[in-house]
Design a binder for these strands. Sequence first.
DNA 1: GATAAGATGTTA
DNA 2: AACATCTTATCA
Length: 180
Amino acid sequence: MSIIKRDFYARDTLIVAKDLLGQVLCRKVNNKICKGIIVEVEAYTQDDPACHAYKGLTGRCASLFAEPGTAYVYLIYGIHNCVNISTYKKGYGSGVLIRALEPLQNIENTNGPSKICKAMCITRELDGKDVKKMNSGLWLEYGEKIPKNKIVQTTRIGITKAADYKWRFYIKDNKFVSKL
DNA sequence: GATAAGATGTTA
DNA sequence: AACATCTTATCA
């Protein structure tokens, strides 16, 4: 397994989102390593009304504007954390929300964006971390390539704006994709 | 099985 | 006031 490099993230957000399927999200806490295969994602860009970066750079979403391959971790509904990876280029607010994982190592039950964070101890301390470095405690590695006919593209979940954008991608027939 | 409601805190 | 969610309760 090798770590995913900058070039991967420095592309169009939709492409990165699709290509993240099958890659492996890794987290090190208390000398334990957790791993899971990414099976479901959503793309968000600065031109997208549903994106936190739509209204421009704010304190909360600054990580979306950072170098490609930066973690954006935020609190939603007062209770739950969600994790994104910033994409495209520095100064442009875009990223990919990791919605579901297939457990590989030291985790289970990760069929939702906040469940991932709970299972892997991803908190807002990780906001702004560089996921291209293992010593951030959170990074991604190359996994299996997913054949095109196994990738489903559809509408995003839990948003009210731009609800017609088909910017959600998941692996067909995978048990760990979140429910409607 | 399905659907509805409640928890909860940060943000602009 | 809105919010990129999850769990529990209450039906059937």
